[in-house]
Design a protein around this nucleic acid. Structure first.
Lengths: 158, 158
DNA sequence: ATCCTTATTGAAAATGGTTTTCATTATCAT
DNA sequence: ATGATAATGAAAACCATTTTCAATAAGGAT
């Protein structure tokens, strides 16, 4: 079943209402920004993007909306080691390819990789089933992250 | 080759010297604390543990030492969603079993799981080789993290 | 449509883990 | 021992994120 991001349908709005939250312009706009980028964004990135067309929407609202989205499992929150969190639509709600992150600890570069994903998806499925059974956990999100030195930084490091 | 944590040998001290750093009492003590716990600790946890026997060692030094250890790949830094980072010896330098983390977004509980590790180790090895070849990355650490709701929080959530 | 309850919001202030600064001390090659 | 300089502690600064609080907007009931 394809994901319907549009208004009115069982999409984003339905998720909010289903959890007892109201559907507001701010929320719609913030989701619109997240939907239309191919990059992980910080709260401030999102705030700036939103601000162009909706200057009345404040940074606080961006943070609050992101918190809700993360809680509902619609958005993933990442920590790449600089001090600001990055956000991405969860795979099920995104048009972006399934991927994980490769982070350079020196320069901060982040590569989205999509290789070797098939085996990984299968492993996740199996692990997830086992873990939720054993620990009674309801798993909402999963992440793999490699870090080290990217090509450039590796070379400079005499 | 087993890891020699002891003084003098090619262990911790050797790592520091090899990177051009000095070997100090603070560093030795902080590593001692990390080595003797089975839990991921925050900088402040470590500070308190260290403080009992070495009240002269300050929190700043703990942070600085942890940064070095993370940079050298000897320690892993985790973000479990509360706002403080947690630290653990990297697997190669720890007596603790290979494991990953299962984080409850509601109550913050973290479960270390060791199931399904064999397939995962193999997948990591393969992925890592492919990625470092394709992107020129030197990978220093790898993490998998699941999050969602633990058994208790799941139940309370009517 | 109009009320009314209450969730949502923006601006400003507060928070608090982590970093910086800087003067002092410890390490270690010579 | 000596000197160069890396490491350290205390206090101050930093800054992403949260909290506060009064004003506004959503949406069910009327």
């Amino acid at each position: 079943m394809p994901w319907r991001g549009g208004k009115g349908g069982p999409g984003w709005e339905g998720h909010f209402r289903g959890c007892g939250y109201r559907w507001t312009v701010s929320r719609e706009v913030i989701i619109e920004v997240l939907s239309s980028t191919r990059h992980h964004m910080s709260a401030e990135d999102i705030y700036h993007a939103v601000h162009k067309d909706y200057p009345a929407i404040g940074l606080t609202t961006v943070y609050r909306t992101l918190d809700l989205l993360v809680d509902m499992g619609l958005v993933l929150k990442f920590d790449f080691g600089d001090k600001r969190a990055r956000y991405e639509l969860a795979e099920e709600f995104s048009t972006k390819e399934h991927h994980h992150h490769l982070v350079c600890n020196r320069c901060g570069r982040v590569i989205d990789y999509t290789e070797f994903i098939d085996d990984e998806v299968e492993l996740f499925k199996k692990t997830e089933k086992g873990l939720s059974k054993k620990y009674g956990f309801q798993i909402k999100s999963r992440m793999i992250q490699f870090s080290g030195l990217c090509g450039n930084c590796n070379r400079e490091q005499k």
